[in-house]
Design a protein around this nucleic acid. Structure first.
Length: 409
RNA sequence: GGGUGGAUGACAGAGCGGUCAAUUGUACCAGACUGUAAAUCUGGCGCCUUCGGGCUACGGGGGUUCGAAUCCCUCUCCACCCA
């Protein structure tokens, strides 16, 4: 399913086949947690160069519900995106919602809307979450996560995992990775059983025009390597998942607060163990220099909220030097300040009278038509267009970066 | 002309003898954000500072008090009511 067309040291350039189409690697998945990339239409995403999106099992399960999505003809048809979609399993919510109380948003008027943040209880059986919106409890097992993802019609299904926080004791990390492996096996068993039956695949084998997109008749299933910052545990996790056998391997539990050079180590420990012909996915990453670094170490896929969320918060990416080969301008040393871009906060006073585009070299709709001064104005008067234009630009930056990394030279 | 209630930092608006350079919100300034609890959050926001503190401040002036944004007198302005 992954065809590598070109290799340059450990950097892999190729294409990944899914049941909804083929995607060039390495690639970045814009995040559409609840079935939409915040602020953008699918058509706009296409124009920006997006080929594949990420949705979230947990969020779509709570709202609108996987059954409803299935009734709508699957997530592709429901959200009008006929390209591939990867769904995260809900494992990250084990991390992001765990132990959170109403410590945020105390001054926000929206607090009343979400009075209590869910507690997360992990057991052998699965995870009990509270809905962050209404506090209602929901139980998700590994099988349930797969069932939901199949019903959604996902192209790349992630196993349910536990994403432990940092710092994390060796002892806990070991228990956690072993649980993740047992869950991964249950996910795979359930997945295989359902795929064999072929019953609950949703309508995702055909796109919204009723056209068959791929010869691949089933979604892909990825395992997730955990083990925190411990070499033997990371490698043990990889070994256990390799033994089970997945269509691709993700590295999870990274960028959860650990020192930045740990990421380098984790990649160095784990990547050599993974098969060449299976895609490798670094989950939740990251900053541009981290993507460049990881690609040079053999990672094929990424997802991250940075371009979209930071855009909404007024933080924009600006190229420093778009010429020359990125691979050579970004040394494979982390942590290291990025040398090929900078970020600006468009709300800063210094942009008040700056009538130049965000980035002179950028070909995005925003940079072609609007000035920094206008964008700053939109942010300061809280016009929704601000977040939209900023999102367009930041995603273009990320997708252009990936294009450069796909370049064979 | 008479009466009543007011005047607080950019704005709104608390405080009504000491713990007040003064709650809070907005605005403004800056920062953060990594499988989206997020169009969010954090910090700053009189002047000076050797970061210990110092200085000037709650409409103007004058009192009472060890001590006043807070009490009294007076002036100015604003709102409402009665002539």
């Amino acid at each position: 399913m992954l065809e590598i067309l070109h290799k340059d040291n450990r950097r892999r350039v190729g294409k990944l086949e899914t049941k909804s189409g083929t995607v060039k690697t390495p690639f970045f998945l814009p995040i559409a947690t609840k079935g939409a990339v915040k602020n953008l239409c699918p058509e706009e995403l296409r124009n920006l160069g997006a080929e594949i999106l990420l949705g979230n099992t947990y969020h779509l399960w709570l709202r609108p519900g996987h059954k409803l999505v299935q009734k709508a003809g699957g997530i592709h048809s429901f959200m009008n995106w006929d390209g591939p979609i990867l769904t995260d399993s809900g494992g990250y919510q084990v991390f992001s919602l765990a132990g959170k109380r109403q410590t945020r948003g105390l001054t926000s008027s929206r607090l009343e809307v979400r009075p209590r943040i869910g507690e997360v209880k992990i057991s052998e059986k699965g995870v009990e979450f509270s809905d962050p919106i209404d506090g209602k409890k929901h139980f998700m097992s590994p099988e349930k996560s797969i069932e939901i993802q199949l019903a959604l019609g996902s192209d790349i299904i992630m196993v349910l995992d536990e994403c432990p926080p940092y710092p994390c004791s060796r002892e806990y990390a070991k228990k956690s990775l072993e649980l993740t492996t047992r869950w991964a096996k249950r996910c795979k068993d359930y997945f295989d059983k359902k795929i064999k039956k072929g019953s609950t695949l949703g309508n995702s084998l055909v796109n919204s025009q009723g056209r068959k997109r791929s010869n691949l008749g089933r979604p892909l299933l990825f395992g997730i390597i955990q083990g925190s910052v411990y070499k033997d545990l990371r490698q043990e996790s990889a070994r256990q998942l390799l033994e089970l056998g997945f269509d691709g391997y993700a590295i999870g539990g990274v960028a959860v607060g650990e020192p930045r050079e740990k990421m380098r180590e984790i990649l160095e420990w784990v990547l050599p163990m993974l098969p060449e012909d299976k895609p490798r996915y670094l989950m939740g990453l990251g900053r541009p220099e981290e993507l460049v670094f990881a690609v040079k170490h053999g990672i094929d896929m990424f997802d991250c909220v940075i371009p979209t969320r930071n855009a909404r918060h007024g933080s924009l990416f600006v190229w420093k030097d778009k010429n020359g080969s990125l691979a050579s301008t970004v040394e494979a040393k982390l942590p290291k300040p990025a040398n090929f871009y900078k970020t600006i906060n468009i709300t800063n006073e210094k942009f008040k009278k700056d009538f130049s585009p965000i980035d002179k070299t950028c070909k995005c709709y925003t940079c072609q038509n609007y000035t920094r001064a206008y964008l700053r104005h939109l942010f300061s008067v809280q016009e929704p267009l601000a977040g939209r234009l900023a999102t367009i630009h930041n995603l273009k930056f990320y997708l252009d970066l990936m294009k450069m990394l796909q370049n064979r030279n």
